[in-house]
Amino acid sequence: MNILIFVLLSLLKVAVVTVIFLMAVAYTVLLERKLVGRIQNRWGPSRVGPFGLLQPLADGLKLFLKEDLMPTAVFRPLFILAPIIALSCSLISIGVIPFGENIHWHGVDMFQIADVNVGLLVILGVTSIGVYGIALSGWSSNNKYSLLGSLRSTAQMISYELALGLSVIGVVLRAGSLRLRDIVNIQNTHGILSWNIFGGIQIVAFFIYLTAAFAETNRTPFDLPEAESELTAGYHTEYSSMKFAMFFMAEYANMITVGCVATLLFLGGWSSPFGNLLPAFGGVVVQALLPVFWFVAKVFCFLFLYVWVRGTLPRFRYDQLMGFGWKFLLPIAIVNVMATSLVLAFHG
């Protein structure tokens, strides 16, 4: 009986997290359209539902009903496989992300799908596999714009993966663990003061992570793979209907994942910014849900930043992009790793 409850609760948890994640993806698109609209002095979507809130549903329905075109010259197996790789890799990462305190109910961890000892590495690994989605889509499309877009994207993601990986080493050194819950647990003693970005003096690492994450998710100012003025639409030029929607969802899901990881590593995860200053109010349920609120609020700020940057910054030139990644971010990340290890060796 116990094992049955465990399995049912686990399945329910996975289903709930997946549905919330997909809804979050849909509404991130709306958030972006609304905010970019306001930045450009227009309203954004406002017709479907109150304040345009039903716009994501209408978009989803439209993409479902579109004709699924299959160009004649494409390499079919990979053309179909590529969006599946992109979307599934971006959805898997949410499985190891903790979004609340370690509370167990009937033996089920309520606020995390899988507590993996090497959780941080799993996220990096899944991200590195996600490159194939973009690389193969461009190649299998048999279109020179697609190929150029995917070559750019692959080169960009490989280059910035190094800086991204090196920027999180300082955090791992401080926590002494690759488990995401351990990394958060060392940051929740004195509220905002013990977050890695301030108390851990990982502010440099945070900005390296931020920049590299923008590049990894192919977002402005690093959105050269789909630079519409030169490449029509980059790697997804030939895609239509749900296959295009899968790339679109993968991009936004990656944004959310990157925001979650930044929150966990640098912004104290689900811990409250006020630490113990805030008295414990409400019952057990409120106290269990409050950390989730803080976590979601921090991720929301990160997504807001994403849209803000998209609305304000122009695109890099390709050589600037590569030069910035290899000649600026990477050396700084290495210096940061060395400085953090020296400080920890003498004071830790």
Binding site: Y132, A135, L136, L151
Partner: peptide
């Protein structure tokens, strides 16, 4: 993630 991406990259 890294070595095979480079292989695929070169083939492409």
């Amino acid at each position: 993630g890294a070595i095979m991406v480079l292989f695929v990259f070169v083939i492409m």
